[in-house]
Amino acid sequence: MDGIAAALGDAARWRIVELLAERPRSVGELAELTGLRQPQTTKHLQTLARAGLVAVFPLGQRRVYALEAEPLAAFAGRLRELAEATAGHAGERGVVARYRAAIEADSAVAGRDRWADGREFAFDRMLPVSRETVWRYWTDPDLLASWWVPAPLTLTDCGIEPRPGGRAVIAYRDADGEYRSEGKVHAADEPGHLAFDLAVPGPASFTGHYDLTFTEVPEGTRLRLGLRITATTTEALSAIAGIETGWGQVLDNLTAVLIEKG
C-alpha cells in the first residue's frame, strides 16, 4: 500500500492513471495528453509499474501501457476502511475542536495570574447502579483507575482516601509528557458526599476544588460534580480551557464502565 500511495501522490502520475483508466495508451499519446515530454512520461510510467499499477506491452517499436485494476481495488478498499474508521471516531474530532475553541476563547482573557480564579463548572450524570457502587468507583484505587483518564493517556498513580485529610492524587502520562496533581480530601460522607482538592504544580499551576454528591434515584444514582478553580497562572491556559471537555470525557468513561457492569 505504501508504494501505491507514493506513486499516486504525484499530480502528473495521477493524471496518467486517469487517462489509462479510460483505455490502454502509448507513451507518445500519454505525453501529448498530459503536456509532458516523453522522457518524463516514461519515468512516471516506470514508477507506476514498480508499484504494480500498470503493465507494459511492447508492440514492435511502440510500448503500450495498461492500468492494473486489482491493486487499485485493494487500495480503494483500504481507503474505505480508513474512511469508515474516521467516521466511527468523529466524536473524538469534535472533542479536539471544542478544546481548541475553548483555548481561543480563554486566550482573550488570560493576560494575568489568577485570571480564572472563581471559575466554576458543573457536571451531572445518571448512573444505573447504587450509590454504594458509585462510591467505591471513586474511592477504591483499582476501580478509580479503570475510568479516570481517557485514551490515549496512561494512568501512573491515582487515589482518593475517603476521610478528611486523606490523600488525593492523579498522575498520568502521554506521548508529550507527564502530569501530576495532588491535594487532600475535605469531606467524605459515605456514600453520599465527597469533597477534595487537586493542585497542579509548576508554571502552569492551578487548584481545583471538587464537590461530589451521589443521590439515590429510581434509575440508580444521580452524580453531581461541582468544580471551582483557584490560584490560576497564565501558563495554565490550555489546562483550564480543557477542563469542561476533559471532565466530560472522564465522566462518560465512568458511565460506560458502570453501564457495562450493570
Rank of each mutant, 00 (worst) to 15 (best):
A241V: 06
T221Y: 13
H186F: 13
Y210N: 12
A74L: 12
T41E: 09
I240C: 01
H89S: 13
A188H: 03
D124E: 14
L227K: 09
D197P: 00
F196W: 15
F196Q: 06
P203D: 01
D189N: 11
D113T: 03
G3P: 15
E216N: 12
A231V: 00
H44L: 01
Q249R: 07
V169G: 13
W247C: 02
G9S: 03
R100F: 04
L258T: 15
I259P: 06
G166K: 01
A175C: 04
R37I: 09
V149W: 00
P150I: 06
E81V: 12
L48C: 04
R25P: 01
R62C: 05
V109P: 13
R125K: 14
L33F: 13
T232L: 01
G220R: 14
P164F: 07
L251W: 03
D124I: 08
T221S: 11
A175P: 00
L155G: 08
A195I: 03
R222Y: 08
C158G: 01
Q249W: 00
T154A: 05
F75D: 02
P162Q: 02
Q249F: 00
T41N: 01
D157Q: 15
A85Y: 00
G202L: 00
E182Y: 03
R125S: 08
V56W: 11
G9F: 03
Y99W: 13
G94C: 05
E190N: 14
A188P: 02
Y99V: 05
V134I: 12
A21I: 13
L143I: 04
A87H: 13
L127W: 11
L153A: 05
I243T: 10
T232D: 03
A102Q: 15
P201L: 02
E92P: 01
T133C: 09
L82N: 11
H186M: 10
A236T: 00
A151Q: 14
E178P: 03
G242V: 04
H44F: 07
Q40T: 14
D176S: 04
Q61R: 13
V54R: 06
R93Y: 11
D106H: 07
A108I: 12
A31Q: 04
G88M: 05
R80K: 12
W147K: 07
D140F: 00
V54L: 01
Y179C: 03
P162A: 06
A97G: 07
G166N: 11
R131N: 11
G248R: 01
R37E: 12
G111I: 07
T221W: 10
D142R: 15
V185M: 06
R119H: 05
V95M: 03
A151H: 11
R112K: 08
W247L: 11
T233N: 04
R98K: 10
A199T: 12
W14T: 14
R125C: 10
V217D: 09
F196H: 09
P218R: 12
E235L: 04
F57C: 10
A171V: 05
A7P: 11
G183Y: 02
E190H: 12
A12N: 15
W135Y: 07
D113Y: 04
A5N: 12
E29N: 07
S205T: 04
D106F: 04
H186W: 15
A74M: 14
A12G: 15
L45H: 03
D189H: 10
Y179T: 00
R78G: 11
R78H: 07
R78E: 11
L155R: 09
L212S: 05
S238G: 02
A102S: 14
D2T: 15
A195S: 15
R50W: 04
A241L: 02
S26C: 02
G202A: 06
V250E: 08
